[in-house]
């Protein structure tokens, strides 16, 4: 394994993404779940950058810049929401919010 090929990057991205999905599905703490979504983002970002390099154009990289910018804005918003939710029920457990039960 002398050189890092496209597949290595794709694998890294896929692992990050999969960890994010699994984390989101299994953890109950709202903040940890939120961190998991960020992990999924980064997995996708890695994939985009890898493809960008591979194809030799800058589309993917510029796209990632946008993704990161949006993610930053979204993180600020989401953490604010989490604080709000905590104030309402004094807990971070996602189970506490199940008004959508059919």
């Amino acid at each position: 394994m002398e050189y890092l090929t496209l597949n290595h990057y794709l694998l890294t991205g896929a692992i990050l993404f999969a960890l994010g999905v699994i984390g989101f599905a299994t953890r109950r703490n709202l903040i940890v779940m939120f961190l998991c979504t960020e992990m999924m983002f980064q997995g996708v970002a890695v994939t985009l950058v890898a493809f960008s390099k591979y194809h030799g154009n800058l589309d993917g990289q510029s796209f990632v810049i946008f993704v990161l910018t949006i993610a930053a804005a979204e993180a600020a918003l989401a953490l604010g929401l989490v604080v709000y939710l905590f104030r309402r029920k004094q807990t971070l457990d996602a189970e506490a919010w199940s008004a959508m039960k059919g």
Binding site: V21, F24, A25, T26, R28, M33, A94, E95, W97, S98, A99, M100, K101, G102
Partner: peptide, 18 residues
């Protein structure tokens, strides 16, 4: 017909979506 499926748990929705 679908109501029994919705348990109101966040993770449940996520899994179904995935």
């Amino acid at each position: 017909a679908q109501t029994p499926l919705a348990r109101g748990v966040l993770q449940g929705f996520a899994v179904v979506m995935a």
